[in-house]
Write a protein that binds this DNA or RNA. Sequence first.
RNA 1: GCUCAUAUAGCUCAGCGGUAGAGCACUUGCUUGGUAAGUAAGAGGUCACCGGUUCAAGUCCGGUUAUGAGCUCCA
Length: 643
Amino acid sequence: MKITLPDNSSRELPKGSSGYDLAKDIGPGLAKSAIAVTIDGVQRDLHDAIDADASVSIITIDSDEGLEIMRHTLSAQVLARAIKNLYPKSKLAIGPTVQDGFYYDVESNESISSDDLGKIEEEMKKIIKTKSLITKKLVSKKEALKIFKSNKEPYKEIIINESDQDDNFQLYYQDDEEFVDLCRGPHLPNLGFIGSFKLTKVSGAYWKGDSKNSMLTRIYGTAFSNDKDLQNYLDNIEEALKRDHRKLGKEMDLFHFQDEAPGMVFWHPDGWTLYRKLRNFVRDRLKENNYIEVNTPQVIDRKLWEASGHWDKYRENMFITEIDEEHANEKRVNALKPMNCPGHVQIYNQGIKSYKDLPLRYAEFGLCHRYEPSGTMHGLMRVRAFTQDDGHIFCTENQIESETGLFIKFLSTIYADLGFKNFDIKLSTRPEMRVGSDETWDKAEEALEAAIKNLGYPYRIDEGDGAFYGPKLDFVLTDAIGREWQCGTFQLDFNLAERLDASYVGEDGKKHTPVMIHRAVLGSFERFIGILIENYAGKLPFWLSPHQVVVASIISDVNDYSLEIVESLKKEGILAEADLRNEKISYKIREHSNRKVPIILAIGNNEKKDKTVSIRRIGSTDTEVVDLKAAIKQITKENSALQ
RNA sequence: GCUCAUAUAGCUCAGCGGUAGAGCACUUGCUUGGUAAGUAAGAGGUCACCGGUUCAAGUCCGGUUAUGAGCUCCA
């Protein structure tokens, strides 16, 4: 039979040869590092027989695919077996690979905590040490059910029963055949290929990811081909931990949370300075891009939320208020606004709008409250009260494309100025829970896709992830350590304007319903500030920093000159302060560096005599002595670059 | 909301049945110094909250609240 290799060359091999035979035929080095094969695009075990002409590529242990298979074997053959050895009564569920590692879900009546991970790792090492071969048996559905019934593995039985195949269920064994796992494979040919691994955490996870199902124990691990890669990965996690905005927010005295208001931020003076700087920046950009800023009420009668459809879909997640008993005659149910859009429609609806008024772009830094489930809150990243850089564009159908283009340009300059040069675009289509007819959805999805296509931006499609009122574009940026954050959004809405009776008079003199576009660039200020802190590891760009310059005196003789410098900087709108304390200069440098102050000017007798300053910037230990006037000019320039 | 864990000084944490501890920060004294911690002393806590066991509870048990890691969710 003819085997075609990835480079399009081909080889003749006897029928029934395996991937291993092929690798051996090509060379002994390849045979040594081969662990699996891809046959006509499907990954298979190395020793599976190939029965007919096929395109085959050998998967080696040092490839990305090889690494994933190694992790999979580590999970399904080693971790699973170690758990069964230590907790014989536990029931195995599934053990897939995930980004950077793997996990195994088990049901266990004994609780397994992170303290037990060391013990499980030891057991895994014992299993790996056997360097056992991994062999496969193919059995019928009946046979497979019998085996797992006698092994008391109910989750495996469910998996088999739900499968639509009748035979060829793959069972994997090690040398002693005491452990068996059902698996779609492929696996390593033997345990000798396993590299460096570490179990990382334990948590709960629902069977099949459904919150109605029982909760299983999930054990996470990670594995790499060698110790160095594993250590590198662990160091990256460490780095992310160092950047955690909750830790830095405390250290930099930016904000706090407390029991009485879970999920709601207490902004401290410095945090609020940062917040206002960011808001002013966005506000100026909105003005430049022909948005009109508005403001709408915090508490609105449920009638409006019923009309908008929110009451129906999101009642559970809204903060509800009632007027108390004393004012019984005014008794009515209100909700704290979870969104700004119905409010904006009320403003639009005042007076008659003409097609000449469109597109009309309203913007609001609207404070919204959403009752997020208790387990989902996370520092600034997920809160119950947050301010969106929200906006709604009322336009006609044929303005959709130009509005899409204008928005993407608008968003990309803001991201770039905040230090995020790249972003991805995601197009999300109709979800299951939605309002509006299928015809309307067809129209909206087509319009949005046409707009983005014609503009030539690359995008990927996320089926079923749209808002309940329309399809959307989401903008995902990548931070300094490679993490992705979904921030911007651009949502077409052919429903809400109609539900809330918004209209305009067209050229034909008749009433038409405008298209509404919900859009945000940062998303929420709270979350975005969290992202900024983590992206910059607290070392914010100069113009955003809540403390910009500290003038630190080396001896008290230069206090007057130091204060003079501070005054000059303040005159230029710089946030400058003097540190005249009776402390050593190294002490002051350390303290202000820890606070992430971008610029420290150290002042001693030399500087005073020469009318200079010694500049030290955060993140560097270099110093530079510069003429005072030149320094102020330079600092002022840096500050005004984006303000 | 679910599973597991955690809650002690401003911060980071130790203490795990018998009168509350450390380091840093803070206050005061001495120290005027050249780019990431000068020095000595002092002050600081209803051990998250409610209940139980015990002669005795930060310490053991139950509940509540919040936080953390996941899961589910996110207009």
